[in-house]
Amino acid sequence: MNDTPAPIWCPHVTVACVVADGDRYLMVEEEVGGRIAYNQPAGHLDDGESLLRAAVRETLEETGWTVELEHLIGVHQWQSTEHGDGVIRFSFSARPVSHDPGRRLDDGICRALWMTRAEIAALGDRLRSPLVLQSIDTWLAGQRLPLSAIASLLPEDPSS
């Protein structure tokens, strides 16, 4: 008889921002596993960090853009083809506030760029995941959930 408890499944928790400017979307060109891939500004949730704070932080670190979150677009579950693990992605819409073109971007980020939905779709398998277009298309379909749908009981960061 085996009394060892089964391991608890721990998915990667990520955040992403759909940042629109007219018909263009803020995208990130990045090197992943030796190839160039395209994604929204996105990344992992840090321990002790709220989802909202993580989305704003990742966007700034990967693009140099400060954004203001507007809505939760949705929560998407996916099995990564990159590393094989489960991913839970919280996708937000945000509006661009200001840009620091001199800001050093995260390691692996080649550049930030603005692209239309058609240009993004044309990237095909160069997209980091199917969640990129799913998030844009969900936003284009009008899904807008209030940010208040996400609650955090974490202490507020005094530096923000």
Rank of each mutant, 00 (worst) to 15 (best):
M115Q: 11
P158S: 04
I36E: 07
P130F: 09
A94R: 06
L26W: 00
A55Q: 10
S129K: 08
Q40L: 15
Q40H: 15
P11K: 15
G86R: 15
W9E: 05
A151K: 03
W139F: 15
T59N: 05
V87I: 13
R104C: 07
A122W: 10
S80D: 01
P96N: 03
G108C: 13
E29L: 07
E58H: 14
L72C: 08
L60N: 05
P130A: 14
I88P: 01
N39D: 14
T14A: 14
D100W: 04
A20Q: 14
A37W: 05
T63A: 11
R144H: 13
H44V: 04
D3C: 02
L60A: 08
C17P: 05
R95D: 07
E62Q: 13
V132S: 13
S98A: 15
Q77S: 15
Q40Y: 03
D46F: 07
E30S: 13
T66R: 15
D137L: 12
E31V: 01
V132H: 14
G108N: 08
A149C: 09
S93W: 04
S80T: 04
D85C: 13
A20W: 06
C10I: 05
D125H: 14
A94C: 08
R144Y: 12
L72W: 06
D3Y: 13
S50N: 03
G102W: 11
S152K: 00
E68K: 02
G33V: 05
E62L: 12
C10R: 15
G86C: 09
M27A: 12
W139V: 00
C110I: 11
F92W: 05
T138D: 13
S93C: 01
S93H: 01
V75P: 08
G84I: 07
I88M: 10
V87S: 07
G86N: 12
V87H: 13
R95S: 12
W78I: 01
T138Q: 15
P7L: 06
L45F: 00
T81I: 05
E68H: 01
P7D: 06
S159I: 06
L147V: 06
T59W: 07
A20M: 09
F92M: 10
R57H: 05
E30Y: 04
V19F: 11
R117S: 11
G74D: 07
I150R: 02
L131I: 03
L140E: 07
M27W: 02
H71E: 09
A20S: 12
S129W: 03
N39V: 02
